[in-house]
Each structure stands twice: as structure tokens, then as C-alpha cells.
Computed example of a mutant assay.
Amino acid sequence: MPYEPPTHTVERSIRATTGAKIIAGVDEVGRGAWAGPVTVCAAITGLRRPPVGLTDSKLLSQKRREELAVQLEKWVTAHSLGHASPEEIDELGMTAALRLAATRALDALPVRPDAVILDGKHDYLGDPWRVRTVIKGDQSCVAVAAASVLAKVRRDAMMAELQGEFLDFAFADNAGYPSPVHQAALRELGPTPYHRLSWAYLDALPAWRHLKKIRLSPEAAELESGGQLGFEF
């Protein structure tokens, strides 16, 4: 399906209205997975022409994502990644875990951005960052699209590394998301040390629901889309 390539329109608008010179695009991957970290990439691209075919990572094949990631690592002005572990997600809730991972990514950049473009409509980052949220920013904004691809490829590689240790879960194929193979392995074997134990999927697993953790943070009542019931076991 054809798509419009991302542009620097938002970056130019932020520069014109705020005077910001260094702008980072930020995107996350792994929010809806049942296992593995949530990963955030912060990318600074300037206003240069991006590699051909750059768009939201979800619109690209695995092969094309990996090819683009190699190009982007050399093309971007700077980028960095931050992660929040399953344990941190269980303890903090997803919103705070996203903030933690994003802060780690931004703090790891060699320069501090004057402004941040955040994919989506919710600002999970907050002060002290100057944030512009953009719905479908991973399709429309060059820096966010670059962050989307780099985050996805890196997290997929991290999950694939677990394949040898947990072959039955097929993490190399599903990246921790609830595929049929993943769900079947959960029923038989229970969660691995890399699973999020505060999420509602455990309520549908009588043999393992005693492992469920109750969040103690202020965001304990938050409902994350990937953590709700509604998957068939």
C-alpha cells in the first residue's frame, strides 16, 4: 500500500514557534507485549533528506526495517535507546515505565534536545522536557519515523536473543506479543523471568495466576491496552 513519506513539517513548526534548534523524535515499541522490556528510541535528524522508504516501522517488512536501521544508524545526527524492564513495568505501571525508558534514552544522547516530538496523543514524558505530541508521528515526522525503526529493530533483536533459552515461546517470531505459540507455551510452562507479571493475561491461566503481582504505584489502576483480557487461551 502506498504511503506518504514523512516530512520535517513539525520540526520546522517547532523551530519557528519556539526557537528550538535541537529536536528529538521519540517513539516506543513493546507497550502491548506480554514479555520483554518496553523500548524507547530518541533520534535527532536535523532537516536533511531521509533515506528512501522511511516510515512507521509497523508498515515495513522485517527485512526492510533491518536494512533501513543500518542506514539510519549512519544517517541520523544522534540516537540512543532506553529500556524499562518487565520488573519495572510491574512495579511502576506502563505510563511511568515509558517515562523512565524515554528519559533514559534522552539522557543518553550526546546533546540535550531543546524539544521533543512524541508519537501519539498522550505526553507520558512531561517536565522538564518541552514536548509536542503528534498522532501517527511515526508516519508523518522524519525524526519519529527514524526512532520507530531503530527502536523496533533493536527490541526485536533483544527478544530473538532469548530464543535459545526459551525455545517454546518463539520470542524470535513474536517479540513477546501474544501469538498462538506464545499463549500455548504460557498455558503449559507458565511465565518466564521476562514476562510482565502484573498483567491481566495471568487471570486466564489458573495454574499460574498465583504468580500475579499487584502494583503498589499510583498508576496501579491504569489499564494498558495490551494488559487487558480479551485474548483466547
Rank of each mutant, 00 (worst) to 15 (best):
A35W: 07
I44G: 03
V181T: 15
L54C: 06
R99A: 05
A145S: 15
T18H: 14
F231K: 14
P51E: 04
R31L: 09
A145I: 00
P50Y: 06
V52P: 02
A108Q: 12
S61W: 07
D127Q: 04
W208R: 05
G120N: 08
T9F: 09
S179L: 05
I89C: 11
P128F: 06
T18M: 14
L125Y: 12
L125K: 14
P180I: 11
L81R: 02
R196T: 09
T133C: 15
A24H: 14
R104H: 05
G227Y: 00
T133R: 09
L205N: 13
G120C: 08
L59S: 06
D203K: 12
G36F: 02
A143G: 03
V142P: 05
V76Q: 04
E161R: 14
K212D: 11
N174F: 10
A172N: 14
R215D: 04
L223P: 08
R132G: 06
F231A: 10
A172K: 08
T103N: 04
G32I: 03
Q139C: 13
H83P: 01
W75K: 01
V29S: 10
L167N: 01
A220E: 00
S217M: 04
D168M: 04
G82T: 09
G30I: 02
N174Q: 12
L202G: 02
D119I: 03
D90H: 15
P206D: 13
A145M: 00
E73D: 01
M1I: 07
D156F: 10
W199F: 15
M159W: 03
A102S: 13
D138I: 02
E73N: 01
E67F: 04
P110I: 00
F166Y: 15
L54Y: 05
Q71R: 13
G53P: 03
D173H: 12
R15L: 13
A184L: 05
L186R: 12
G226F: 05
G137N: 07
S179C: 07
Q163K: 03
T95A: 14
